[in-house]
Amino acid sequence: MENFVEIQNVSKVIKGRKIIDSLSFEVKSGEVFGFLGPNGAGKTTTIRMIAGLIGITSGDIQILGSSVKTNFEEAIQHVGAIVENPEMYKFMSGYQNLVHFGRMSKGVTKEKIMETVEFVGLKDRIHDKVKTYSLGMRQRLGLAQCLLHDPKILILDEPTNGLDPSGIREIRDHIRKLAREKGMAVIVSSHLLSEMEMMCDRIGIIQQGKLVDVQLVHDVIQTGEKQFELEAEPANAAVELLKQQYPESSIALSDKNISIVILKEEVPNIISMLVQNDIKIYGLKEVSKTLEDRFLEITAKKGE
């Protein structure tokens, strides 16, 4: 697959302080790249550098082979972006806003505008003033604004910020659809880790201006052993038995729940063993390790 965006050894110095330190990564066609990091790590700064809002101190950013630094117009014409909340002209209608931004790119027709409006599902309200829109509608208008000129790269800074669950889901579906069907390269930053898990193919973790880790989402979450939660009676007896059987696993009891970390293949053995020992089993479920846990693990480790 082709690299649509290449960040090459980029640094940013503001007032003598290195905000971004030799950052390098690339995003391929059809890929959703998540940008993850604690507040102040430099996510937004990086995204703004890609979009040309902030100058680059050293290094370069190539978009489809054109440098943002030296060939801004050529590079940025393939980019659609929402940087933080999509602020629109509130005194104009949604349609007028789209006409306004459409005029700034080449070849955006009226038909294209209406097509985009339909895609984001704003058809009924598009001629109302933006100040009457809900946050979700503004976000959808923001998405429409950055899709007008058929960009090959989509940059979304905190796209789900302040949205309700259905709004979040809607944006997520749109992003996945755009990456799959149109082969766009999408760069997303978010502080909602569970969101990233569902949206992204690859996640880069940034900390103090450095890229700490880039991993496939699948890898981030997958590790051999998993945590299970078991509800059984009598609980104490169950714990005793489990400890005898699996002395090297970590087993803990809280209230009535027993938590145990173990390979998935062992689960049937546990159940049959407990049943044979006359222990009543009310439930057993997998506690999936979230991205958040992994994220905290990684950042804590590298931060030392």
């Binding site: 979009a51 809002l53 940087v83 629109m88 931004f101 700034m104």
Partner: peptide
């Protein structure tokens, strides 16, 4: 003030 400058400057126009 409106924050629209961000959307204005990410167009292919110098």
């Amino acid at each position: 003030n409106w924050g629209t400058i961000k959307l204005l400057l990410i167009r292919p126009i110098r």
